[in-house]
Amino acid sequence: MTALLQAEGLALPGRLSETGLTLAAGEIVCLIGPNGSGKTSLLHAVTGIGGPSGSVRIDGDDPWRAGPARRVRLLTYLPATRELRWPLLARDLVRLGGAGPEEVEASIARLDLGAVAERRVDRLSTGERSRVLIARALAPRPRLLLLDEPTANLDPLWQIRLMEMLKADLAKEGGAALVAIHDLDAAGRYADRLLVMQSGRIAADGAPAEIFAGPWIRDIFGIERREGVWQPAT
């Protein structure tokens, strides 16, 4: 597989130690780690938020130097927060993400937001609002999706739908996704690779089966799987 994302020497002072990262086309890579381990910082660094050092190339192109029109074709970022600064209409919020009109409508339809598209986002349920924000990030169909807790606030059906949708899109279009997620089962089910974050650095990188079989989950999270469910390690 060809490398879609190549990041070298990525660092954010006090938040992320110097880190290298490669994502192949078609790959979903999940970032797992306890609170404060650096998952969001790594997403910020790749996006170019907070003045990171190092370099990022997506298909050989530098997204940090790309203008807004080109940048949304290279990467989009979904922050973990569902708080909104301004009460826009749902459709307008998706439009502000830089996608074309047809892409906007397609994204609204895929996230099943047609009925609420002309409503103000602050008057939607948290789950609907999350879907609006996801629709904004997916609409421009970028090469790399950087998603922070995309399934948070979604009901179980939508959690599955969203991850299946990502998987199908990436397989079809050859993009890649870097997804920070707390749900280890979802990470294990949908990721091609897991990156375990600890204290602002990547502590382990491997296929889900390999990571779950190793010592990292127990050592870093302090949990282990017993009787088919995650429980505090003994």
């Binding site: 996006t47 940048r71 970022y77 927060t81 708080e83 600064r85 502000l96 830089g98």
Partner: peptide, 13 residues
């Protein structure tokens, strides 16, 4: 773009 939040505005360039 700032209406989408500072982080998203930054991510949009």
């Amino acid at each position: 773009s700032l209406a989408l939040g500072e982080e998203v505005a930054q991510s949009l360039g």
